[in-house]
Lab assay of single mutants.
Amino acid sequence: MLDDRARMEAAKKEKVEQILAEFQLQEEDLKKVMRRMQKEMDRGLRLETHEEASVKMLPTYVRSTPEGSEVGDFLSLDLGGTNFRVMLVKVGEGEEGQWSVKTKHQMYSIPEDAMTGTAEMLFDYISECISDFLDKHQMKHKKLPLGFTFSFPVRHEDIDKGILLNWTKGFKASGAEGNNVVGLLRDAIKRRGDFEMDVVAMVNDTVATMISCYYEDHQCEVGMIVGTGCNACYMEEMQNVELVEGDEGRMCVNTEWGAFGDSGELDEFLLEYDRLVDESSANPGQQLYEKLIGGKYMGELVRLVLLRLVDENLLFHGEASEQLRTRGAFETRFVSQVESDTGDRKQIYNILSTLGLRPSTTDCDIVRRACESVSTRAAHMCSAGLAGVINRMRESRSEDVMRITVGVDGSVYKLHPSFKERFHASVRRLTPSCEITFIESEEGSGRGAALVSAVACKKACMLGQ
């Protein structure tokens, strides 16, 4: 009897593995994704193909990295998701002549009506938060230079001027797309009239992360975010950046690689679950690469896999709870928690219980395998993109072996128990001629924006502006 049951459990697990095998990517698959990513990057950089390229390769006008001589107080704003952060950054000489960066910050959550109302409502709310922060720190009387981390696709015309191309991540505030974001912020500050600010720089969160990590390690020339969304930036040779005049030196390019796949480059790798996630998203047909990796989508992918296993009578005796059938019910943090389970399955059992399920031991094991399959594919897909960037940098610099540091931020990278190990191992397999160091950014977005502002202020002083 026991043997029969054991055989049935083994057969069930084997069927589960057959279904989950769809998520496995072979090294040849990853090399294919990497080569296609490089081709799209090239198209994004070139003037004649930029418009139709899915990977936009947006110039950021960040050319210099901090040298350690900029000092002063800077205000930093960070808008990239449902939370908005205001930070005071003091850049100065530390002990023994070292450079020191001290920060104080406060988080504000953005109400739904500000995210989806008008641009005026959104930026009025942001300036209200700045006003509140300055009151708390008794700094209303000071006109501070301000660095703005704005983590949406922007076409820069200068370091302090950028046109919002399109909202992502659930934002829909009308009247912002096609307009200068810094102008919208300046107008809102003017409307309030109770404080003055000098907006000197606007950067993407990947750029802010790279600059913040450069402060720790001067070989950091790539910034990457794996959180709600997924994106990367890197220092490109100016001669390859056709959208900006000049051939000397390097400029940081914001790849906006989340949109890779929007022209069909990933079609052969998309599964039924991916198509369902895409169809029910706020932007169907867009940001397809990001939807395979980002935390906004990972939990939902797992939920759809679990429903398939229920329908195949391989999980929960073929019956799903009402909660499990509800879109968004299986949160991405559950994926991390399930994979963090120590082996007694308590954590998995508790999560499934909150979803109205009474799982068996085998159910718990199957749910864990589903989570591992989805998150491992995410790590491997992400590795193909980064390997594409790094191999490109090595080739354009004609280096036999390139040493490089990548600064990384984002909740999936930082909080998932195995993502970074799987990701690092896969990147290294795909970049055999590179020695890569990964560092995690601390308060990256805010500190990085302030350091970019410090560079901009120093330049302005040198130019006598």
Results as ranks from 00 to 15, higher is better:
residue 4 D to F: 01
residue 6 A to V: 12
residue 7 R to S: 14
residue 7 R to W: 14
residue 8 M to I: 15
residue 9 E to I: 15
residue 11 A to L: 15
residue 12 K to R: 13
residue 12 K to A: 13
residue 16 V to A: 15
residue 17 E to G: 11
residue 21 A to P: 09
residue 21 A to T: 15
residue 21 A to H: 09
residue 30 L to W: 10
residue 31 K to Q: 06
residue 32 K to F: 06
residue 41 M to D: 00
residue 44 G to C: 07
residue 49 T to R: 14
residue 50 H to A: 08
residue 52 E to T: 14
residue 66 P to W: 05
residue 69 S to A: 14
residue 71 V to C: 04
residue 74 F to T: 00
residue 79 L to N: 08
residue 80 G to C: 11
residue 82 T to K: 14
residue 87 M to F: 08
residue 91 V to G: 04
residue 96 E to G: 09
residue 97 G to A: 10
residue 101 V to A: 03
residue 101 V to P: 03
residue 102 K to S: 12
residue 103 T to Y: 06
residue 103 T to E: 01
residue 105 H to I: 05
residue 106 Q to T: 05
residue 108 Y to Q: 02
residue 111 P to Y: 08
residue 114 A to E: 02
residue 117 G to Y: 08
residue 117 G to I: 02
residue 117 G to K: 08
residue 119 A to F: 04
residue 119 A to C: 06
residue 123 F to I: 03
residue 125 Y to I: 14
residue 128 E to D: 14
residue 129 C to D: 04
residue 137 H to G: 05
residue 139 M to W: 07
residue 140 K to R: 10
residue 141 H to P: 04
residue 142 K to P: 03
residue 145 P to M: 01
residue 145 P to S: 06
residue 145 P to R: 00
residue 148 F to P: 06
residue 149 T to L: 13
residue 149 T to K: 11
residue 150 F to H: 15
residue 154 V to Q: 11
residue 155 R to M: 11
residue 156 H to V: 13
residue 157 E to Y: 15
residue 163 I to Q: 15
residue 165 L to W: 09
residue 165 L to H: 13
residue 166 N to A: 13
residue 173 A to S: 06
residue 180 N to M: 15
residue 181 V to F: 09
residue 182 V to S: 09
residue 183 G to P: 12
residue 186 R to T: 05
residue 186 R to Y: 11
residue 188 A to Q: 02
residue 189 I to K: 08
residue 193 G to H: 15
residue 195 F to C: 03
residue 200 V to A: 03
residue 203 V to E: 00
residue 203 V to A: 02
residue 204 N to A: 03
residue 209 T to W: 02
residue 209 T to V: 03
residue 209 T to H: 04
residue 211 I to Q: 05
residue 211 I to A: 00
residue 213 C to M: 04
residue 216 E to G: 03
residue 217 D to A: 08
residue 220 C to E: 00
residue 221 E to H: 05
residue 225 I to T: 02
residue 227 G to C: 08
residue 228 T to L: 05
residue 232 A to F: 02
residue 236 E to N: 00
residue 238 M to R: 04
residue 240 N to A: 02
residue 240 N to G: 01
residue 245 E to M: 03
residue 252 C to D: 00
residue 253 V to A: 01
residue 255 T to E: 09
residue 255 T to N: 07
residue 255 T to G: 08
residue 256 E to T: 13
residue 256 E to W: 12
residue 258 G to R: 15
residue 263 S to M: 06
residue 267 D to E: 05
residue 268 E to F: 03
residue 268 E to R: 02
residue 268 E to H: 06
residue 269 F to C: 02
residue 272 E to V: 02
residue 274 D to R: 00
residue 275 R to G: 06
residue 275 R to M: 10
residue 277 V to W: 07
residue 280 S to W: 08
residue 283 N to R: 10
residue 283 N to E: 09
residue 286 Q to V: 14
residue 287 Q to G: 14
residue 289 Y to H: 15
residue 290 E to H: 14
residue 292 L to F: 15
residue 292 L to W: 14
residue 293 I to C: 14
residue 294 G to A: 12
residue 295 G to C: 14
residue 296 K to N: 13
residue 297 Y to H: 09
residue 302 V to N: 08
residue 304 L to C: 11
residue 304 L to S: 05
residue 304 L to Q: 11
residue 306 L to M: 15
residue 307 L to C: 06
residue 307 L to S: 06
residue 309 L to V: 03
residue 310 V to I: 12
residue 311 D to N: 05
residue 312 E to R: 06
residue 312 E to N: 03
residue 313 N to L: 08
residue 316 F to H: 07
residue 316 F to C: 13
residue 317 H to P: 10
residue 318 G to C: 07
residue 320 A to D: 12
residue 324 L to D: 00
residue 325 R to K: 14
residue 326 T to Y: 12
residue 328 G to Y: 11
residue 330 F to G: 01
residue 330 F to V: 09
residue 331 E to N: 11
residue 341 D to S: 01
residue 342 T to E: 04
residue 343 G to K: 03
residue 343 G to M: 01
residue 344 D to W: 06
residue 346 K to M: 07
residue 346 K to F: 10
residue 348 I to Q: 05
residue 348 I to L: 05
residue 352 L to P: 01
residue 353 S to M: 12
residue 357 L to G: 08
residue 358 R to V: 10
residue 358 R to M: 14
residue 361 T to Y: 07
residue 362 T to Q: 04
residue 364 C to M: 02
residue 365 D to M: 11
residue 367 V to R: 00
residue 367 V to I: 03
residue 369 R to S: 05
residue 370 A to D: 00
residue 371 C to I: 03
residue 372 E to I: 09
residue 373 S to H: 04
residue 378 A to V: 07
residue 379 A to P: 09
residue 379 A to E: 02
residue 379 A to Y: 04
residue 380 H to D: 14
residue 382 C to E: 08
residue 382 C to R: 02
residue 384 A to Y: 08
residue 384 A to G: 06
residue 386 L to T: 14
residue 387 A to Y: 01
residue 388 G to F: 02
residue 390 I to N: 01
residue 392 R to L: 13
residue 393 M to K: 11
residue 396 S to V: 13
residue 397 R to L: 09
residue 399 E to L: 06
residue 399 E to W: 12
residue 400 D to W: 04
residue 401 V to Q: 08
residue 403 R to W: 04
residue 404 I to H: 02
residue 406 V to S: 03
residue 406 V to F: 00
residue 407 G to P: 01
residue 409 D to T: 10
residue 410 G to K: 06
residue 411 S to K: 13
residue 411 S to G: 10
residue 413 Y to P: 08
residue 413 Y to N: 08
residue 416 H to Y: 12
residue 419 F to C: 02
residue 420 K to C: 11
residue 421 E to T: 13
residue 426 S to D: 10
residue 426 S to V: 13
residue 428 R to V: 14
residue 429 R to N: 15
residue 429 R to V: 14
residue 430 L to N: 11
residue 432 P to F: 08
residue 433 S to P: 11
residue 433 S to T: 08
residue 435 E to K: 12
residue 444 G to I: 13
residue 445 S to M: 13
residue 445 S to K: 07
residue 446 G to M: 13
residue 447 R to C: 12
residue 449 A to R: 09
residue 450 A to I: 13
residue 452 V to I: 10
residue 453 S to F: 14
residue 453 S to A: 09
residue 454 A to E: 11
residue 457 C to Q: 04
residue 458 K to P: 12
residue 459 K to D: 05
residue 461 C to F: 15
residue 461 C to M: 15
residue 463 L to A: 11
residue 463 L to T: 10
